[in-house]
Simulated assay, not measured.
Amino acid sequence: MGFLDLFSAASMPVLKVLIVTALGSFLALDSVDIFGRNTMKQVNNIVFFVFTPALVGSNLARTVTLESIISMWFMPVNILLTFIIGSALGWVLLTITRPPQHLKGLILGACAAGNLGSLPMIIIPAVCNEKGSPFGDPVVCHEYGMAYASLSMATGAVYVWTYVYNLVRFFSVNSQDLNNVVASRDQLTESLLPSSSSTVNKKEKWKVRSEMMKQQLWNLSRRLNLKAVFAPSVIGAIVGLMIGTITPMRRLLIGTTAPFRVIQDSASLIGDASIPTMTLLAGGNLLKGLKGSGISLSLVIGIVIVRFIFLPLSGILIVKGAIYFSLVHVNRLYHFVLLLQFALPPALNIGTITQLFGAGETECSVIMLWTYGLASLSLTFWSMFFMWLVA
């Protein structure tokens, strides 16, 4: 493949995302006021509860079988590795920059969680349809690409709503909560320790430590909310996997001769609205970053370096190692998707999570503005390099 073919195949999908994102930002302007705050919130609810589950479920049901699920076992592991490596790099960034307490969860989440949902759903089909794509027949590429992207979205949603959600929740403790913890600790110590004039024996010290540990574990358990794991997109993925892998259900719903194919067709019709709507919402949310402040430039630069330099380089080593040890099946498109998962900007769901806890909402908008602005260059470069690498 020539350089121009690779550049065209890599850049066109990103340009499409930029155009629709810019339209979303324009609609969210105060002078236009089509995408106001209340409107965006309502549209976001429709995307979250209706469009995305229909998109994920219908694609998985149509393209995934039990054999293909077994062959794609490495993808959830690969995504987990992006979170682990991103978290480790984010922790290094925290030790260097020393941000405020309430921003630590946001920074770790932005470094760990990539946009494994809407961007692969847009980029992968667009790459398949571009002239000069190394992935063969566009129809077959699109079919399998949507299956990979759907599984990526579902797996990413599980990790985001278990890991990042609880990170932000844990670090969003306000000063009053901290004062309450300190006060309760002091009261506990005073009630269990004898006066300062007496000698504190080892048994009493151990009792104090054990009681304080119990209290801290109780406080932590109250902060964890594992119910958030079952986001609508995850439920849609479970339903889609059941239909795709259970033969009697598949015969009833999937295919031109299926008696209940109208259900699958309706779900696909609804799901098709998800990608453009999510992209418009992304543009509207990024507009907030122009008005935001309160986060240091070093933090933004650090997150950009983690997500667009160190993580893609780590991904090349991991995916190439998995191919070398025959952990993944021989499929260039599958390899490309695994590599792409390491080069994505932060997950848009992080903005929703910060809104839930009121911790770092403005700062999150600034991070999203810069990372998604620079992603137009980064994704073009890495997509082109990854296509050259797998071809």
Rank of each mutant, 00 (worst) to 15 (best):
327 L>H: 05
109 G>Q: 15
123 I>Y: 06
211 E>R: 11
141 C>S: 09
303 I>P: 04
80 L>D: 04
114 G>C: 14
107 I>N: 00
258 A>S: 02
118 S>W: 09
270 I>V: 06
51 F>Q: 05
21 T>K: 04
159 Y>H: 07
122 I>H: 10
111 C>K: 11
236 G>D: 00
244 G>M: 05
28 A>D: 15
74 F>Y: 13
203 K>D: 14
304 V>S: 11
12 M>E: 05
269 L>Q: 03
142 H>I: 00
54 A>I: 03
299 L>M: 13
197 S>P: 06
119 L>S: 04
89 L>D: 14
124 I>T: 15
159 Y>V: 04
193 L>A: 14
114 G>Y: 15
114 G>K: 06
120 P>N: 14
272 D>M: 02
156 G>E: 08
120 P>L: 06
204 E>F: 03
102 H>L: 05
224 L>F: 14
23 L>R: 08
236 G>R: 02
281 L>M: 13
295 I>R: 01
291 K>Y: 03
78 N>P: 05
136 G>W: 03
172 S>C: 13
288 K>D: 12
23 L>D: 15
248 P>T: 01
18 L>Q: 09
321 G>W: 11
179 N>G: 12
195 S>V: 06
117 G>R: 03
329 H>R: 13
103 L>Q: 07
272 D>P: 01
224 L>M: 14
225 N>D: 10
244 G>K: 08
200 V>P: 08
293 S>R: 01
274 S>E: 07
312 P>Q: 03
150 S>I: 00
324 Y>I: 12
264 Q>T: 02
58 S>C: 14
373 G>Q: 09
253 L>E: 00
290 L>F: 15
228 A>C: 05
273 A>W: 00
273 A>R: 00
307 R>L: 09
105 G>W: 01
373 G>A: 14
378 S>T: 13
288 K>Y: 11
293 S>G: 07
109 G>E: 15
50 V>R: 01
66 L>I: 10
359 A>V: 03
70 I>P: 02
378 S>L: 01
254 I>K: 04
237 A>M: 15
296 S>T: 09
11 S>H: 06
199 T>H: 13
249 M>A: 08
158 V>A: 00
219 N>H: 07
304 V>L: 06
285 N>R: 11
99 P>T: 02
244 G>Q: 04
71 S>M: 05
253 L>H: 01
142 H>V: 02
300 V>D: 07
60 L>I: 10
5 D>S: 10
147 A>R: 13
56 V>N: 02
145 G>H: 07
107 I>W: 04
296 S>K: 05
68 S>C: 03
36 G>C: 08
288 K>A: 10
305 I>M: 02
54 A>V: 04
53 P>H: 09
186 D>N: 15
173 V>S: 13
204 E>P: 06
220 L>V: 11
340 L>Q: 14
50 V>C: 09
148 Y>L: 10
180 N>L: 14
221 S>G: 12
130 E>A: 13
366 V>S: 04
2 G>L: 12
249 M>P: 01
73 W>T: 00
159 Y>K: 07
262 V>E: 05
203 K>N: 13
376 S>T: 12
272 D>S: 12
375 A>Q: 01
106 L>I: 13
122 I>E: 12
68 S>V: 03
314 S>Q: 11
260 F>M: 07
208 V>S: 10
218 W>Y: 09
128 C>V: 15
41 K>F: 10
89 L>T: 15
352 T>E: 08
152 S>Q: 11
10 A>R: 06
309 I>T: 04
125 P>N: 14
131 K>S: 15
163 Y>C: 14
70 I>V: 11
247 T>R: 13
103 L>W: 08
